[in-house]
Design a protein around this nucleic acid. Structure first.
Lengths: 230, 230
DNA sequence: TATATATAGAGAAATAATTCTCGATTGCAA
DNA sequence: TTGCAATCGAGAATTATTTCTCTATATATA
């Protein structure tokens, strides 16, 4: 019974639930830690306890990656790590261009951990001539005017936008012109791109909203109910 | 009929849906743009068209803020902007401490836009003595050992973590010790805090997972179905 | 003034996501 | 070998979120 029945990624027509995609890296990180500490197997219960998630949810998420477990034993950590990598596309290296060599751009370039996800920032671009012709964390910074041609020549299909909001659309245009398939947009602005291009916005204001509203509400409630320490 | 019937934030026991909270800043930004361009009113239809969202959803989100509109006319932009600010807690200034004066920390400190949300980073902290006693974007960088006391003295209740993953828990501990109510965690690591503390994780790997999985799937599908251009 | 139309608001329906339930399987211990 | 406990896997039930439908209303126009 070791025939590995249909081990491939399930290619349903419907997309994968985004909440699932956002949880998989959490499992991935934990699994690597567990593996480093010498463990070979893991159960949904354990992952759930560790990450404060429902075990069934963990099981369903893992199911998406195509990994099968065994009752009483759980999953093989190595197998699971590989399955998640494969499922997320982190098993192949993807080269990326970064637009906007400010401190956020620099922070991302210095973020060593992306190589673990197969993401490799190969060059940075900026409108400011003073920032060009430098090397930042081992990557050349070039003028944005060079972006589209270079992107096509190097067959880079992934773009990262770390420019101020007002310049975001221009940056997106350059990346689209260069043939980008996917854009990771850190600018707090909506960008217009052709439908074929996949965009994920990393809008800090949206996250901040969640936090500050919860905090505000909590303060308001504690003030209205118990006076000092409920 | 100008009596403003119960204009306050609806304090239901259940929390506000997180998707709603994440959309409100998008409306907020658009509304400010519209206001700057001279408009006085706006309809859900218009917001929806602009942001590619269902008008009903926009209406439900706006409903949460307690704003009432008028048929055929829509909402008063000014009123709506204020309501969103109030609802998110962006109408009051909240002071914050930032832990980790690396390039990500620097990027956040330089991000002028946060004042618009009432967030004011008043000081930064780092373990590295070489980074201390400097001024970064007008904020003093101090040694982390000073954090808890200073935080209590200054009555700062908001913390931002921009340290590497391995130091995240220590940073969280310091903030909790200093009496933090809310923590915005940029480190790709789960942090353990008392239940009373609200945490929002800004985990780049989670966003990247969404993007890279979609890209991978798209590439896989286009390769398996149409050869070149479907 | 009457009519047409865009829109808010309320509630129903549909869809998506999470959590619960139960049966089957496996390894461990008696 | 037998019984027990942990766990996966499948599907049902629940809950959350989005979308649809309908009605009332305000404005503009004829």
């Amino acid at each position: 019974m070791n025939e590995s029945k249909e081990r491939s990624i399930p290619e349903t027509v419907k997309g994968v639930p985004e909440p699932t995609l956002r949880r998989l890296p959490l499992y991935y990180r934990l699994l690597k830690q567990l593996r480093d500490s010498g463990r070979a197997g893991v159960s949904c219960t354990m992952i759930g306890t560790e990450l404060k998630l429902d075990p069934t949810q963990v099981r369903k998420d893992i199911e998406m990656t195509g990994t099968v477990g065994r009752p009483k034993v759980g999953y093989d950590i190595n197998e699971l790590v590989c399955a998640i990598e494969r499922f997320l596309g982190w098993d192949n290296t993807v080269e990326a261009f970064l637009v906007g060599a400010g401190s956020l751009g620099e922070a991302l370039m210095g973020y060593g951990g992306f190589t673990e996800c197969g993401l490799q920032i190969v060059a940075a671009f900026d409108v400011d001539p003073n920032k060009c012709h430098r090397v930042m964390h081992g990557k050349h910074v070039r003028h944005v005017s060079k972006l589209p041609n270079l992107m096509r020549r190097m067959k880079v299909r992934f773009g990262i936008i770390t420019v101020p909001a007002v310049e975001a659309q221009q940056a997106a245009n350059l990346l689209v012109e260069g043939g980008a398939l996917a854009i990771w947009n850190f600018a707090p602005a909506k960008i217009q791109v052709p439908e074929r291009v996949i965009v994920t916005n990393e809008d800090l204001y949206c996250s901040l909203a969640v936090l500050s509203q919860k905090m505000t509400r909590k303060l308001a409630l504690s003030r209205s109910k118990g006076g000092s320490k409920p």
